[in-house]
Amino acid sequence: MTDQLKKILLGEQGLVVIFVVAFALVSALVPNFLTDRNMLGLLQSVVTVGIVACTMMFCLAARDFDLSVGSIVAFAGMVAVMASNYTGSILLGLLAAIACGAFVGFINGVVIAKFRINALITTLATMQIVRGFALIASDGRAVGIHSPDFYQLALSKLLGIPTPVWVLAILFCIFGFVLNRTVFGKNTLAIGGNPEASRLAGVNVDRTRICIFALQGVVCGIAGILLASRITSGQPNAAVGLELSVISACVLGGVSLAGGRATMSGVIVGVLIMGIAENAMNLLNIPAFYQYIVRGVILLLAVLLDNLRSSALGRR
């Protein structure tokens, strides 16, 4: 590697450079990739992962972890469908879904921050509990949507772009702002950098952590609603394994699992790289079994790159 190249790849914007190169390569080599239809499809396919990654970024940045997101998404989707079927009001259904998500997240946060139970264990538990609730509520079957207006959430378009993609874009903007420009965001990063020093500097560590998990719940609620609308039903088995894709995307995007380091632009790139890889493999008809391997390899490479970058910057 020449010094010049090394400098670019290991610099702050290294990931963006790699993304641009990968995008160009895939566009040139994979037929039908760079078409309007495929691009919109690609964006729609990353909506769930992308939305949840927004708050997972906060979670990881504060040295926490959340495995329950997949279950919350499925549960919230169920609640949205069942509540709007029952009340006949979509709005009530949506609110109920978001409230349920927030509630589960809040419980996660309280157990983790106040009772000092390890986040991995806590969310592993809620992940199963919540999935169980989703299955019980629906008796293990998919629940169909009564009102056709509900489909419109996913189907409708604004300026030619599907609503869910707009929601994703707006959430990216909001959480990018929250991370960089608000006390909450900075406190999150500080807690991840050094929790004890943050406490002594007057940061309300417990409340911040509870807020992060509650927000994560809200966002999972939104993702669950959009997902239910797209698959036109509430599926208790939806979004299995989502937590891993989301955490992968965040790590790809340079979020440090040791806490204290995260950028919204990095996470966006991480989400898109995962999306592009999957999309390209589908277009090339690569069997699903191989796709697992490719995804794993991409993740490993990204982490290696991050490690190189840290040592190039002299951090340890």
């Binding site: 500080a190 950098g193 004890e196 002594l200 806490g259």
Partner: peptide, 8 residues
Amino acid sequence: HDGIIQGR
């Protein structure tokens, strides 16, 4: 331990 916030 109590002062610097690493990474920031």
